[in-house]
């Protein structure tokens, strides 16, 4: 499996979002169907998607609409568009026949602002956002390790920050044992060194 099974958000076509929650499809078959998805009838009924159900081990319940989150997101988009419009205007709006540096960004930001308003209007109905959970702190930790990597790589090379990052991910974010984490971190860095510095002579800052 790829980097962790991902829960599928319900990507219904924007207009048809919300509606009745899709029922769980027929019992997930063991493993995927051989020759591609079972012949899907033209326009399958919402939810009875044999391809999707081929992923075992998932909760299939789609997300409920979250009006508050959606409104917040829509506001962010609209605000971003508006700020962008202002920034583009200051670059010089120009005219359609003689565009200036800011003409195109202005058009794009204007469209984004309008779309943000549309999102605001449909905030009650859209059902493709997820909530933050207790595990969300892991994200911050993950980003923190990457920030640490960036901060240290210029001064002490990539070996130590990489090893630390791998260790933190393995032990704390991945729940592996101390020994495995430590050993794996060292091995990973050694492999990277061999490939990037040894084989490819990439001029990445390195200590050894």
């Amino acid at each position: 499996m790829g980097p962790g099974p991902a829960k599928r958000t319900a990507p219904e076509a924007g207009e048809a979002s919300g509606g009745a929650p899709a029922p769980d499809g027929p019992g997930a078959p063991d493993g995927p169907e051989g020759p591609g998805p079972a012949a899907a009838p033209p326009g399958p009924p919402a939810g009875a998607d044999p391809v999707q159900d081929a992923e075992p081990g998932f909760e299939e319940a789609p997300e409920p609409p979250r009006p508050r989150t959606n409104t917040a997101v829509a506001l962010v988009v609209t605000a971003f568009g508006a700020v962008g419009c202002l920034g583009s205007w200051s670059l010089g709006p120009g005219t359609p026949a003689e565009p200036a540096a800011g003409t195109w960004p202005l058009v794009v930001c204007a469209v984004i602002t309008v779309l943000g308003c549309v999102l605001l209007g449909t905030a009650r109905r859209t059902a493709d956002t997820e909530a933050f959970s207790a595990a969300s702190w892991k994200i911050l930790a993950g980003i923190g390790t990457m920030a640490g990597f960036i901060a240290l790589i210029g001064t002490i090379g990539f070996e130590i920050p990489s090893a630390l990052l791998a260790f933190v991910w393995l032990r704390f974010l991945g729940g592996e044992s101390w020994r495995l984490s430590a050993v794996a971190s060292v091995l990973i860095v050694a492999a990277f060194y061999a490939v990037f510095v040894g084989l490819l002579s990439v001029p990445i800052p390195h200590l050894f």
Binding site: F158, L165, F196, V202
Partner: peptide, 24 residues
């Protein structure tokens, strides 16, 4: 295991992106 693959992928990405323009 995803727990092991994740940091490897992260590091490949971080180091790999550096190689494009030699830029932190």
């Amino acid at each position: 295991r995803p727990a092991i693959l994740a940091p490897i992928t992260v590091l490949i990405t971080l180091v790999g992106v550096y190689t494009v323009r030699n830029s932190v």
